[in-house]
């Protein structure tokens, strides 16, 4: 298995692309750090007892006054920046991944059906997609947030923030998947292997998911990686604007919003550390997406 991977075309291309290798390494480190945050981080930023205001606003270790205990400094509450970022990335990645999965399932399902059936169903789905595209993600998020607040009792509001945010991001991303899946399905549907399945009298769902889906997976995987980056960015944007997560469970966006207050105060690390971290994460995921696109493009082999 490992030997097969080592000799595969994809890995061969990876070894020849330094950008993709670095991007892969960065993404791997970030994701591993986020997943294992509870074991790596020195303090738990959600646990108020684990840090003290006395340690507030300490600079990174290489500046005067920095402490070895907090290599990248602390924020105004005395939280260790590294721990805050790792836990923040954990939340950001979780929301991004969940939103991406929901968007994939929704978009690919609708796109496949629209491409397979065509006609009126296709027209309706695609018009809904057009409307969705015209709505900015922030509006969608506000809308869903508003509905959730209206429908659910007030003591639940804090608990559903993550779900609301995920749903809002998913809703603004599914269109990409639907359009790509639909266009590829249009092409595949007229191929002879699909016609063979139709002639045999196979159920439309089986034709769609067993025959067409595996053949259109390539471009969808690319969109999945690129949209994962978009989802993380969107979450950061929404949190930055205050629609997302509150300060007591900070995601990367929330950390950046908090840091904004210290932009001109000289405590630069509170803003720049999470910002650079977010940029590194998003850029490396995007580079991986570009690399995947090349791998799936047979012309470049």
């Amino acid at each position: 298995m490992l030997a097969r991977f080592w000799h595969s075309d994809g890995f061969w291309m990876l070894r020849r692309s330094p950008a993709a290798m670095i991007a892969g390494l960065v993404a791997f480190l970030v994701i591993a750090g986020a997943v294992f945050a509870p074991w790596i981080a020195s303090t738990d930023p959600y646990d108020l007892a684990s840090f003290s205001l006395m340690d507030g606003l300490l600079p990174p270790v290489w500046q005067d006054g920095g402490m070895a205990q907090f290599p990248l400094g602390t924020d105004d509450q005395g939280r260790d920046m590294i721990s805050a970022i790792l836990y923040g990335a954990r939340l950001s990645l979780l929301i991004g991944l969940m939103a991406m999965v929901i968007a994939t399932v929704l978009g690919v399902g609708l796109g496949l059906a629209a491409g397979y059936y065509g006609g009126r169903f296709d027209a309706i789905v695609m018009r809904i997609a057009d409307v969705q595209l015209a709505l900015p993600a922030i509006l969608t998020a506000l809308l869903i947030d508003g509905i959730a607040r209206g429908v659910l009792p007030s003591e639940m509001h804090g608990d559903v923030r993550v779900a609301v945010l995920t749903l809002a991001i998913a809703l603004s991303l599914w269109v990409n998947f639907a359009r790509t899946a639909r266009a590829s399905t249009f092409v595949e549907r007229n191929k002879e292997y699909v016609q063979a399945a139709m002639i045999m009298g196979q159920h439309p769902l089986r034709v769609m998911f067993r025959h067409i889906l595996p053949n259109i997976l390539g471009p969808l995987l690319v969109i999945m990686t690129v949209d994962l980056a978009s989802a993380i960015l969107l979450e950061a944007t929404l949190s930055f604007l205050g629609i997302g997560l509150p300060a007591d469970s900070p995601s990367l966006g929330t950390l950046i919003r908090i840091g904004m207050q210290f932009l001109l105060s000289g405590e630069w690390w509170i803003l720049w550390v999470p910002t650079l971290f977010l940029i590194a994460l998003v850029v490396s995921i995007n580079l991986l997406g570009d690399f995947l696109r090349d791998v799936f493009n047979p012309r470049l082999h």
Binding site: K191, E192, Y193, Q195, A196, A197, I199, M200, G201, Q202, H203, H211, P214, N215
Partner: peptide
């Protein structure tokens, strides 16, 4: 109907052997 007996009795061999077999199966 999808389960009509002719679905099995009539079979077809297509022109392009490169697209008539599902490449992922």
């Amino acid at each position: 109907p999808r389960d009509h007996v002719s679905r099995r009795l009539i079979q077809m061999v297509f022109q392009d052997p490169y697209s008539s077999l599902n490449a992922r199966h």
